[in-house]
């Protein structure tokens, strides 16, 4: 049986306007997201991963816009959808959690109010019904003493608890897709594990698809079914998580994996990829990774390698991996 994807991104390009010139920060991005699967989008700062996430729900800052492509949610293009329809999708079919949970909640509204308004924005229900539902949601994300916590303000919560509230809010209407933009980056390591575990657990219970955006490759390996590696606004490699980690094809992915610090290996110096990543919007003629790539040839600097299918994975490199 063929499962149809819940989200299809086709040839997405996002550009920033600066002094009347468009600088693309994300190019040629295409992927399919299957229901109930976790896709990790991995990349360093400026790789376009957050811009990609924001573009999915039309939340890009005013200076940025989608300059090409399609984002199909169940065969409807989110980009050409009327604003009112898009609002119905936001928060109810596709919802999102962010990097800094404490800043992502409104400081002057109670946690309960913020949950209740989300529910009531999409479902006709009384205040009382919404309250009860909000309590249930807070309990679901593991917040103790939920009825009393409804009237608390975000500043009375820790970062981890704020992220739990954000997750409760995101899951309030049982969405098909959860976009998690670096949801654990601002949290302590122990809390990170808890939140990760919570997302995983709820994802399996609710059977929703997750787009998990992170700069942390180890984290991606733990949580994802499929990993997409972004560099300089381009997809470098996309593969099932297991294959990618066990056998990376792209030199950049290899470099990233080599830089992971392992507990059972002592090293004198932390391994790192030499050189600097390109600035967002900086377009070179060839492969953006060419200047740092150990295997780069003249060809790599002259033209952009296409994304090609190599077995079950997609790789953007001229160097075909020989087995």
């Amino acid at each position: 049986m063929v499962v149809s994807p819940v989200l299809q991104v086709c040839d997405l390009q996002v550009s920033f306007m600066m002094q009347k010139r468009a600088y693309p920060v994300l190019r040629e991005l295409s992927y399919n997201l299957l229901p109930g699967r976790i896709l990790a989008v991995v990349g360093e700062s400026g790789s376009g991963k957050t811009v990609h996430a924001l573009s999915l729900l039309g939340l890009l800052p005013p200076a940025a816009h989608v300059s090409r492509g399609k984002i199909l949610y169940r065969d409807t293009d989110l980009l050409t959808m009327p604003r009112a329809r898009l609002r119905d999708v936001r928060g109810s079919k596709i919802s999102m959690i962010f990097q800094d949970p404490s800043a992502s909640l409104n400081p002057v509204l109670t946690v309960g109010e913020q949950l209740i308004e989300t529910l009531r924005a999409h479902k006709p229900m009384s205040k009382q019904q919404a309250r009860e539902e909000a309590v249930r949601l807070l309990e679901k994300v593991g917040i103790a003493d939920a009825p009393a916590r409804l009237s608390a303000y975000p500043f009375e919560f820790s970062g981890g608890m704020c992220q739990r509230v954000m997750i409760a809010m995101a899951l309030a209407l049982s969405p098909d897709i959860l976009i998690a933009d670096e949801p654990t980056t601002a949290l302590d390591v122990t809390i990170q594990a808890q939140i990760l575990h919570l997302i995983r657990e709820l994802q399996q219970k609710e059977k929703m698809a997750v787009i998990f955006i992170t700069h942390n490759l180890a984290l991606a390996s733990e949580i994802a079914d499929e990993v997409l590696v972004l560099y300089g606004g381009l997809c470098m490699e996309q593969a099932p998580a297991k294959d990618l980690f066990e056998d990376p094809h792209h030199p950049y992915t290899k470099g990233l994996l080599a830089s992971l610090v392992s507990m059972d290996r002592r090293v004198e110096r932390l391994p790192a990829i030499a050189g600097q990543p390109p600035m967002a919007g900086e377009i070179t003629k060839g492969c953006p990774f060419a200047s740092r790539c150990p295997q780069a040839q003249e060809k790599c600097r002259q033209q952009l390698p296409p994304l090609t299918q190599q077995g079950i994975r997609m790789v953007r490199c001229f160097e075909e991996k020989t087995l």
Partner: peptide, 28 residues
């Protein structure tokens, strides 16, 4: 601010985002 982006991501109407969320903070 981030919470305004959250309010939009939740699917609130624009007037709610502007007056209820940003407005209540901006009035201080």
């Amino acid at each position: 601010k981030d919470y305004v982006r959250t309010a939009r991501a939740k699917g609130l109407a624009e007037w709610q985002v502007v007056y209820k969320h940003a407005g209540k903070n901006a009035i201080i």
